[in-house]
């Protein structure tokens, strides 16, 4: 667990920013970041931490902005079996599942 990500989340929340948290909840194969890895995102798309070492962060941030709007958590799947994920670049051959939730 990367605690500096959670500390950043608390700081941003204290600044009244909109904040979402993305967490790797499952991995298969050669996933670049272990289960529990986290990314914190604010309403302007600023982010800190990592869920994939850069491969899918862009897509996760887009979904995170949406999650902040709706207030509903969602699960994202990335992997070689997923054409979209392949396009966003999880080319390492791994698969990951990411839970994106708003901080309230």
């Amino acid at each position: 667990m990367d605690h500096s990500v959670l500390e950043t989340a608390a700081d941003w929340l204290g600044e009244k920013r909109q904040v979402a948290l993305a967490t790797v909840i499952e991995t298969w194969g050669s996933a670049p970041q272990p289960i529990g890895s986290q990314l914190v995102i604010d309403g302007d798309g600023n982010f800190m931490g990592s869920v994939s070492g850069g491969c899918v962060e862009g897509a996760v941030i887009t979904d995170a902005l949406d999650v902040m709007k709706t207030g509903e958590p969602r699960i994202l799947d990335f992997g070689v079996a997923d054409e979209t994920a392949w396009k966003v670049g999880l080319a390492c051959g791994g698969k990951i599942r990411v839970y994106v939730e708003p901080l309230l």
Binding site: L6, A9, A10, L13, L21, E101, P102, L103, L104
Partner: peptide, 9 residues
């Protein structure tokens, strides 16, 4: 995640 859970962590 609620702020209270985050603060508890």
């Amino acid at each position: 995640m609620k702020a209270e859970i985050l603060n508890a962590i």
